[in-house]
Simulated assay, not measured.
Amino acid sequence: MLSDKQLREIEEIKAKAQVSHSQPDDLIDFYHLKSRKGMSQLELEDEVQDDLKRTTGEFIKDADDANELNRIIQLTGFSDPVYAEAYVTSVHRTTTLAPQSSKQIKANIKVSSTETGVIFGNIVYETSNVLERTVIVFNDNHIDIMDYISPALCSDAAFRTMWAEFEWENKVAVNTTITYEREFLDHIIKSTNMKCLTAPSALNGECGFLAANLYAKSMFGEDALLNISVEKQANGKLNGYIRIRSKTQGIALSLGDKITLKQK
């Protein structure tokens, strides 16, 4: 693609009979003698294209460079060990549809946290007959917490520290037809995709009471803590509570909703 583009550019230059702006005493930069250490394939291809434009005299500074410089945001100070700056761009797609035609458009959405667990948006369009915009609101897209959490391990001391520090708690009452404590624990572990931190030796036996700690971590590095405490009643049913704690409200609420749906 690059080579075809370069050939077309050369032919256009020759057709316009443009004169090269290179001076007789300009330095010659031999591309094949350059050091390629630390350069990616994309950077190498850009170098080839730039060298070709320099030799044909078509290497002209874009008029938009001044505007781009005004939009640069400084991220760190000049005295910091690492200097960083950013150039912010936004992608705006405009699509025109002919009568009775259709078009498919795909867009990627970058998610950085699970604070709400909901993705929402809208579609805005205009028609040739109406001068005002029409807005169609999307249905809320609720993300399944099982898609972004996985079992993880942590020490008992770390679990207690996080349990005391995390401010978001969701308390779910036990409501199940399961009559065995260990079976109910295994069911919760499978439903929540969490890791049981309580030793198996502490869970053995049929004493009518069970307490265990579960832990998981999201792909964003967020911690999910769960404590299950159940007791068998005289009628054989299990009674108790499942408490979930997390630093973010989204995980606590999503896990609670998942348990409420799965324990029945």
Rank of each mutant, 00 (worst) to 15 (best):
M1L: 12
S3E: 04
K5I: 10
L7E: 06
K14R: 09
K14I: 11
A17V: 03
H21P: 02
Q23G: 05
D25Y: 09
K37I: 11
M39K: 14
S40D: 10
L44A: 08
Q49M: 08
L52A: 08
R54C: 01
R54T: 03
T55C: 06
T55E: 13
D62G: 15
D62E: 12
L69N: 10
N70Y: 08
R71Y: 04
Q74S: 12
Q74N: 10
L75S: 09
S79H: 06
P81C: 06
V82Q: 13
Y83K: 15
E85A: 15
Y87H: 10
V91W: 04
H92M: 12
T95R: 08
T95P: 03
A98D: 05
P99I: 02
I105W: 05
K106E: 10
A107S: 14
A107P: 01
I109R: 08
K110D: 02
S113E: 01
S113A: 04
T114A: 03
T116D: 10
I119T: 01
I119G: 01
I123W: 06
V124T: 15
S128H: 05
N129I: 07
L131S: 13
L131Y: 05
R133F: 09
I136L: 13
H142E: 09
I145E: 01
M146P: 00
D147F: 02
Y148I: 02
I149C: 03
I149M: 02
C154I: 15
A158P: 06
A158I: 13
E167H: 00
W168D: 00
E169F: 00
K171D: 10
K171M: 11
K171A: 14
A173G: 08
E181D: 05
I188D: 01
N193S: 09
K195Q: 14
C196F: 04
P200G: 08
A202R: 13
E206N: 04
C207R: 15
C207M: 14
F209T: 13
L214C: 14
M219R: 06
G221S: 00
A224I: 04
N227R: 15
N227G: 06
I228L: 09
Q233H: 07
A234R: 07
N235Q: 08
R243Y: 02
R245C: 01
A252V: 01
L253N: 07
L261T: 13
K264A: 10
